Simulated assay, not measured.
Amino acid sequence: MAELSREELAAMIDHTILAPNASEADVRRLCGEAKEFGFASVCANPVWASVLADELQGSAVLACVVVGFPFGASATEVKAFEAKTAVAAGVQEVDMVINIASAIAEDRDALVADISAVAQACHDGAAKLKVIIETSELTDAQKVLACEAAVEAGADFVKTSTGYSSSGATAADIALMRKTVGPDIGVKASGGVRTREQALEMIEAGANRIGASKGIAIIGAGEASEGSY
């Protein structure tokens, strides 16, 4: 299993707050924690885009929001507009949820079209796109198809889960996703990663980013904030 220092592990974690009852004070607190501990980003709902940009300006921590969250069932044009608006507010990373029904139907063209529109909205503003495929809802063949579609559409990362479905990240899914996308696309493990051991298992399987609301506990710096992600 990978041996990483606290600082190295923190730099791979998206410090996450996606609860619908999260307040502005909660989001600002996570930004302070992320700067203190050196997390990769703070990931929040898009209503907080400008707050993230304000709090994280001048730091190495990236501002990240989700779009089409948590079901991925918004119209493509809505997802793209949501991403464009967030990037205009100063966000540097966007985590979008695919149209899960398209993946289950194995409709590659629909997946590529959905992801491409959001990728363009992100890349036009120099932001990166992570594509959430919601692995718990898909067969292995559908996971592969979704990852291939994400790569074709220009995504920068593929990501396991929203954290709001029946289960989250597994090492087996991470390994499958890494094998599918190759070495040049990021793979993010999210959903149910709560301990250092779980995080290291995901990294060993091929993840280079971890999404978690328990980042402080994962790096061994204290108790985690409450959260469902």
Rank of each mutant, 00 (worst) to 15 (best):
S41D: 00
A110P: 10
A44G: 09
F37D: 10
A49C: 14
S116A: 14
H123R: 12
I174T: 03
A11R: 13
A105E: 11
A22S: 15
A89N: 12
C31A: 12
T160I: 08
T85L: 12
G154N: 11
A146T: 09
R28W: 05
V97F: 00
A150D: 07
G206W: 08
C64P: 04
T162S: 02
N99E: 10
L18R: 03
Y229L: 06
A207M: 07
K179A: 15
Q57S: 14
G32W: 04
V144F: 05
R209A: 01
A172V: 08
L129N: 00
A141E: 14
I218W: 01
A149D: 10
L30A: 12
K79G: 06
E82L: 03
F37Y: 15
A119S: 12
V61L: 10
L30Y: 15
T180Q: 04
A169D: 09
V87S: 01
I17A: 14
L4T: 01
A86Y: 02
V61M: 08
V131S: 10
E24S: 12
P46Q: 15
V91Y: 06
D95Q: 03
A141F: 12
A119K: 00
V47I: 09
G38W: 03
G90H: 07
V131A: 06
S5T: 15
T162H: 05
V66C: 11
T180V: 10
S136T: 11
S136G: 09
R196S: 02
K35G: 06
Q198C: 04
S116W: 03
S165R: 13
I132N: 02
V187A: 00
A10N: 09
A49M: 04
C43D: 05
E197L: 13
A86K: 05
G72K: 13
D14A: 04
S165V: 08
A10T: 01
E7M: 07
E137W: 02
E3T: 15
I17P: 02
I98Y: 00
A22C: 13
I218S: 00
V144K: 12
A155G: 11
G206V: 08
L176N: 06
D184I: 11
T195G: 02
V97P: 00
I17G: 08
V193W: 04
C64E: 03
D109Y: 09
A150V: 03
D26I: 13
A155R: 06
G38S: 08
V118F: 01
V61W: 00
A169F: 09
C147F: 00
E24R: 14
Q57L: 11
I132R: 02
T135N: 14
A75C: 11
C31T: 05
D54G: 12
I219C: 07
A110C: 07
G125Y: 06
E8Q: 15
E148L: 06
A105K: 09
E197S: 10
F81G: 10
E223Q: 14
A172S: 13
D26E: 08
I104Y: 06
D109C: 04
A171T: 15
L4V: 04
T160N: 13
I185Q: 08
I104H: 11
A224T: 07
M96L: 08
A25E: 15
V97H: 01
I219H: 04
G168C: 10
V78G: 09
S167E: 10
D107V: 12
G211Y: 05
A34D: 12
F69A: 05
G163Q: 06
M1A: 12
